[in-house]
């Protein structure tokens, strides 16, 4: 079943990325990002393609694959797509749905303005990226 607007706002408020936002700010985020649904097995980010977007997973699971090899999985509350937008480069990985996926989407060109408007989201995102970097370093060492 689709989420009603209050349910969507509640769901967003429960995600760590948006945990520091006030209720009106979360409502603004819910209006600013668009809800999308993808079937199982669909690529959402495509390695090497320009113009990708930023996604926050509301429900479902995706695999991150580089040259066809799975590197990680992401689920509810996780986000992806920010790296290539921040760097202005095409994604270095495919992101593929493992089952039906329900996400919030923000077009790439909107991400910078969105993060500047919501520094607390930027900080949370930075922390997650730092964690990913630390885990990747541990994994390699």
């Amino acid at each position: 079943m689709p989420l009603s607007q209050p349910e969507l706002v509640n769901t967003l408020a429960s995600l760590s990325l948006f945990a520091d936002l006030s209720r009106p700010q979360v409502e603004q985020v819910a209006h600013r990002m668009s809800e999308e649904s993808y079937p199982e097995g669909q690529r959402i980010l495509r390695q090497g393609f320009t113009g990708s977007g930023f996604y926050v997973i509301l429900e479902g699971e995706v695999a991150i694959r580089i040259d066809g090899e799975e590197r990680a999985r992401l689920g509810r509350g996780d986000f992806f797509g920010e790296m290539s937008i921040l760097l202005g480069e095409p994604p270095v990985a495919d992101v593929v749905t493992l089952r039906q996926l329900h996400v919030l989407h923000l077009g790439g060109p909107e991400l910078e303005g969105f993060l500047r408007e919501h520094p607390s989201v930027m900080f949370r995102m930075l922390r997650t990226i730092a964690l990913r970097l630390r885990n990747a370093s541990r994994w390699r060492s």
């Binding site: 079943m1 689709p2 607007q5 668009s34 809800e35 999308e36 649904s37 993808y38 079937p39 199982e40 039906q100 329900h102």
Partner: peptide, 25 residues
Amino acid sequence: LPALGVSVFGQSRLPSLTNYWESTN
């Protein structure tokens, strides 16, 4: 249609579709 299994999303209650506009479910 949702009771028949057609999954829907978003405020507009749009059906979840394949690239050929067929219900994914």
